[in-house]
Amino acid sequence: MDLFLQQTVNAISLGGTYALLALGLAVVFSIMGLINFAHGELMTIAGYVLMFCGLAGMPFVLSILLAVSASVVAAVLMERIAFRPVRNASGATLLVTSFAVSMVLQVLFQNLISVRSQPVLLPQILSESVRIGGFVIGVNKILAIVATVVMLIFLDWFMKRQKAGIAMRAAAEDFAVARLMGIRANTVIAGAFALSGLLAGVAAVLWVSQRASVDPLMGFMPVLKAFIAAILGGLGSLRGAVAGGFLLGFIEIYLAAFLPPEWQEFRDPIGLALVVAVLLIRPNGLIPAPALKAQKV
């Protein structure tokens, strides 16, 4: 039973990170119909900022702020430089553009920083753990869960209580009519990217604090997982992204913990088969997006 609880904490922690990443993908997709595969490189950028800040001996809290800010700025620049010129192009063009951005950034990291994985100095406290009742939880896991909850509450508040957030929901549903209301396309899209950068930045801090290293391809796997999570939840649906992220986290962790040793090498195929099974039952995802039409500007 203790093992089960322990693994549940791990699953919430990992699922929360997937949820934040999937949310970032969903926010952008819901507004401009773009699946941004360069989302992972936002994580990597935040990871490198953490590394450099660590080398410079900055306090960790300041490092986090800088890393997340860097990710937000990078996301906004990415939209301005790469995606704005192709905004009205087909979904395939947008997708290929995002792959191009992703690869350009990976090559830049490899050439300007290093091909190898770099260690990130983290405060000692992150690798410690606390005993709660009968079981032991790593501080980094607690941090991940708390950060996820705070981000989800913030996002919910922003989308429901802030005029800019309501405008994003309106634009996601019907962009042409949103423009009729005086909502500027550039502002809403830049806002969506900034939000996705914020989510990627926080996810990167959580990801790095479990691993203490960063490499040029760091963002690829988690964003691939987040993409699966976003589809599992219902592409373009924010609630779906959260549900999909947590479900994927649970599937991965439970399979790793409870699958018999001789089955472990089939863990990923089994996990993906479960995802496919869910999609067979709910083809539009767990919580489908209300307007499954991805309006263009």
Partner: peptide, 14 residues
């Protein structure tokens, strides 16, 4: 073309 997933008041706010 009202925003179906927004409340009535949110539609008016927009």
């Amino acid at each position: 073309r009202v925003f179906g997933t927004l409340s009535v008041a949110e539609n008016l706010l927009m």
